[in-house]
Design a protein around this nucleic acid. Structure first.
Lengths: 210, 210
DNA sequence: GTCTATACCTGGATAGAC
DNA sequence: GTCTATCCAGGTATAGAC
């Protein structure tokens, strides 16, 4: 890890804990173990460190067609088919994986926290935050459920309603337990109950026998 | 409105737009139309202004047993009975009222925005924010659905799952459309669909005929 | 590429006249 | 209770030696 990378990394940690304005260049330099003035050999300004972090997140998110847990490169109908093979139990596991990915991935979780705090201070982070956590997930899952219904894996229903029903509890629990890692078990138990109910309502058991 | 109240009011507006640290005492004084030094005749510090706002919110929230739209003073089973009389349509109206209350009430919406940004900077606001927007709503609605199931207004189901299913879309849509007031119609349309589906799943139509 | 030293500014807060 | 004047701390950023 180069010094430049270490600066960005420590900055993200501090930004996610104290906010952008609550973090001084000296705080970052201290965390890295250099003098604040030395930091300007790597970045021209504090703002540039912030921008670099945002850019890094954008790249990670476009590289990773994650969204719902699958590697990129596959077509939506291929993904839908893969999901369709899932039993209710493994759909539950999947939701937990998504939940824990956002909660535990060092970069993502720190970025989420920072973005939540800073979304109204810069138009750029406002856009990135909303795109990733509020819009793309819903759009993507809507298309996925639409496809899965078409293929007969789920009962016929409004796919957008399904996407919102599936995603909003995950979103809520992430928001709620992001600040309380020790309550992770509680969150997972609640999530489990929600997904079980979701499956009870929408999942087409019969399709599994064909 | 006294000068002291105007200071707190303008401060809340600025805090909700730029954050606590992003707002200077001079910014607040300018908005009120006095010099920054004069402000210290009303508050001993910037922090005290912030604390006053938090306290005000706490008082509003305890005075108003709002939570789901009913005036305080009635017992839970009385409330449940009142809700039970609702048709699916009026339950939908109710959810919109809750949504619009949080979104449109000047004080609440500014406070929400500020709290979202500042939750990790002061333990006190962390507590208040989570209590109001993440915990109390769920706890309260869980008890309410439990009662309504007992009275036969809803099908038998896990009341906590119902509360989460009912509240998390509202929470998500609030988070999403808080920054985009011009998209209010979109949000209401989505909310309507969610509540209709919720009623389709859980509401006991037969009970309405008794 | 790191250091010391420093310039420059803004922000929070106080003193004291009116 | 508002003003002017002022203090002091801390923050961003630059210059120049090593």
């Amino acid at each position: 890890m180069t010094t430049k990378e270490r600066i960005a990394d420590e900055a993200l940690t501090l930004f996610s804990e104290r906010g952008y304005q609550g973090t001084s260049v000296k705080n970052i330099a201290d965390a890295v173990g250099i003098r604040d003035s030395s930091l300007y050999k790597h970045f021209t300004s504090k703002k540039e460190i912030f921008d670099t972090i945002v850019k890094e997140m954008q790249e990670r998110m476009s590289g990773l067609t994650f969204r719902v847990g699958l590697p990129s490169g596959e077509s939506r109908s291929a993904e839908a088919a893969a999901y369709g093979e899932l039993t209710a139990d493994s759909l539950c596991d999947l939701s937990k994986q998504i939940f824990l990915f956002y909660l535990k991935d060092d970069f993502i979780s720190r970025f989420w926290r920072m973005a939540m705090m800073e979304q109204y201070h810069s138009p750029e982070i406002y856009g990135v935050y909303r795109k990733i956590f509020l819009e793309e997930s819903i759009v993507y899952q809507t298309e996925l459920f639409r496809e899965m219904i078409r293929l007969g894996y789920f009962h016929s229903a409004d796919p957008e309603v399904m996407a919102i029903s599936f995603y909003t509890p995950i979103f809520f629990l992430l928001t709620k337990y992001m600040g309380e890692p020790e309550e992770e078990e509680t969150a997972l138990r609640l999530l489990e109950k929600q997904v079980a109910e979701f499956c009870r309502i929408y999942h087409n058991q019969k399709r599994l026998d064909t």
